[in-house]
């Protein structure tokens, strides 16, 4: 084959000794062959672009059919994968919906802790008399902290619900709690284990004992304490729910 053309191995003496090719004749013959090659090339190109399946061999047709079948199988597998994925995603979406619908129950619990829902239950009522307004905000804060440490679940001072962000400040003639100025006497309601809270408050050297001389506190256990003051929650300006959108706890 063309290795002969690339590297003729026969010696020059043998070449041309058997059959004499005219040097010019074989050149013309080669040119004619190339004419035929160009002609056949174009013919085949035209034929190939024109012909459809009808010109193919039976075995080629079977192979094409096989290819199509395999391709169809792969596409079907891919389609079923995608459908499973779609079902999984849809299931996840309904799961989120279910979580949103199931939300109010846990949200109620959170509301009691966060101060957005009224709470009732056994607890303690602390009544602080302070006719000369000697009680400072620090002592009120101590009282609240002591109640928290004793396990109070909901605390209300006067008409103000005490939550995590509640702050205390001294005010003229009273104490400012979350911006609301309360005047004595103060009534502190706390829901929780009344025994524990009473013990915590009345411990020697504790909150009640360290009140100013002119102030006095009475701690009374109650079967039923109603913490009805609510903490107004502002819509967060920056924080956004990290996962799915849920209704604001308010």
């Amino acid at each position: 084959m063309s290795e002969d053309a690339a590297a003729p191995a026969r010696p020059p003496s043998a070449r041309g000794s058997r059959i004499h090719w005219g040097g010019r004749g074989s050149a013309i013959l080669g040119a004619l062959l190339l004419v035929a090659l160009g002609f056949a090339l174009v013919a085949q190109l035209r034929q190939n672009s024109a012909q459809g399946l009808s010109a193919l061999r039976q075995s080629d047709l079977v192979r094409i059919l096989d290819d199509v079948g395999g391709r169809r199988d792969r596409l079907a597998a891919e389609a079923s994968d995608l459908q499973a994925q779609q079902r999984a995603l849809a299931g996840g979406a309904t799961g989120s919906q279910a979580a949103i619908h199931a939300g109010p129950a846990p949200l109620g619990g959170l509301g009691r802790v966060g101060g957005t829902a009224a709470a009732t239950g056994p607890g303690t009522e602390v009544f602080v008399t302070d006719p000369q307004s000697a009680v400072r905000s620090a002592q009120v804060l101590d009282l609240v902290q002591e109640l928290r440490d004793a396990g109070a679940e909901a605390i209300q001072i006067g008409s103000v619900r005490v939550v995590a962000s509640t702050w205390f400040a001294d005010a003229a003639g009273g104490v400012s709690v979350d911006g609301t100025i309360l005047r004595p006497p103060y009534t502190v309601l706390a829901i929780g284990d009344s025994q524990t809270m009473a013990t915590a408050l009345e411990i020697p050297g504790g909150v009640v004992a360290s009140l100013p001389d002119r102030a006095a506190a009475t701690v009374a256990a109650r079967e039923q304490v109603e913490v009805t003051a609510l903490h107004a929650v502002r819509a967060p300006r920056y924080a956004r729910p990290a996962t799915t959108a849920r209704p604001s706890p308010s």
């Binding site: 050149a27 013309i28 080669g30 040119a31 004619l32 062959l33 190339l34 004419v35 035929a36 090659l37 160009g38 002609f39 056949a40 090339l41 174009v42 013919a43 035209r46």
Partner: peptide
């Protein structure tokens, strides 16, 4: 000459279809 032959064959094929 062979290159011309190739071109001639291609032209011939294009013309005769």
């Amino acid at each position: 000459i062979p290159a011309l032959g190739l071109v001639a064959g291609i032209v011939l094929g294009l013309l005769l279809q």
